[in-house]
Nucleic acid binder design. Structure first.
Lengths: 130, 130
DNA sequence: CTGAATCCGGATCGATACTG
DNA sequence: CAGTATCGATCCGGATTCAG
């Protein structure tokens, strides 16, 4: 059970003298929070896709953010970018093995989020009211 | 296996006409990414704590951010705030049941992050070099 | 088609000083 | 002890425009 292990994690880190403001976990969480990277990962989980195909799948993303998010993910080795020298050129993005392995933990979190979406919304309303 | 379910999630959402830019999952991920909330949750996982105690455990957090992060978590019902009318006053924060239930999924993600921290760092260096 | 470059408004964050 | 108020710097994200 991770419910038992998790509480000790922070203590272990502190004993190891980890920089809590800059630990490896933070980098991962930052990515997940980047507003689009998670959706891109989920989209690519359905198979490789090209730039505009991803853009179409995520209606409200701008080209700027799509480019930036893809670069971030590529930089961390979660997705791979392959250019086909066709005319006009096409670029395909796909999950790497590491990116694929993130889908599991991510799914767990998504399950939690969906399960608790209603209680959270309720707590928010209660907080606003009181 | 969630590795199988996750890829379909996005497709399901789209079929349901979900607003991908504003889905419940996003709210949760935003919190985890808020740079401090995760650390606060881990700290409180070790037991209830008072304002300054949390602050001391997280060396580089400012009072401003600590207050704000605690408010956010309280607002969403992940932590509870109890004021003791002592003199001087003391305020204790503790995880709610819902907050406690988040530690599991969070731990899974942390495990992944720790396991892949080295490969990610390597990918980053390789990207910077190439 | 696939991006890069630029500009800009708003949100965010940290430090400081102050209150009950 | 437990915050609040305010200011300034920085960052982020969106729209637009340009290029290969």
């Amino acid at each position: 059970m991770r419910d038992v292990a998790a509480p000790d994690r922070l203590q272990v880190w502190k004993e190891e003298g980890q920089d809590l403001g800059n630990c490896p976990v933070r980098h991962v969480l930052d990515h997940l929070a980047a507003k689009w990277t998670t959706l891109i990962l989920l989209e690519l989980a359905q198979g490789p896709a090209r730039f505009n195909a991803i853009g179409r799948a995520l209606p409200d993303i701008s080209k700027r953010m799509l480019t930036q998010s893809l670069r971030d993910l590529e930089r961390d080795g979660l997705i791979a970018r392959e250019v086909f020298p066709t005319k006009p050129p096409s670029v395909e993005y796909r999950l790497t093995d590491m990116g694929l392995s993130l889908l599991g933990p991510l799914g767990v979190l998504i399950d939690w989020a969906e399960l608790h979406a209603a209680p959270i919304a309720a707590a928010r309303r209660a907080y606003a009211a009181g």
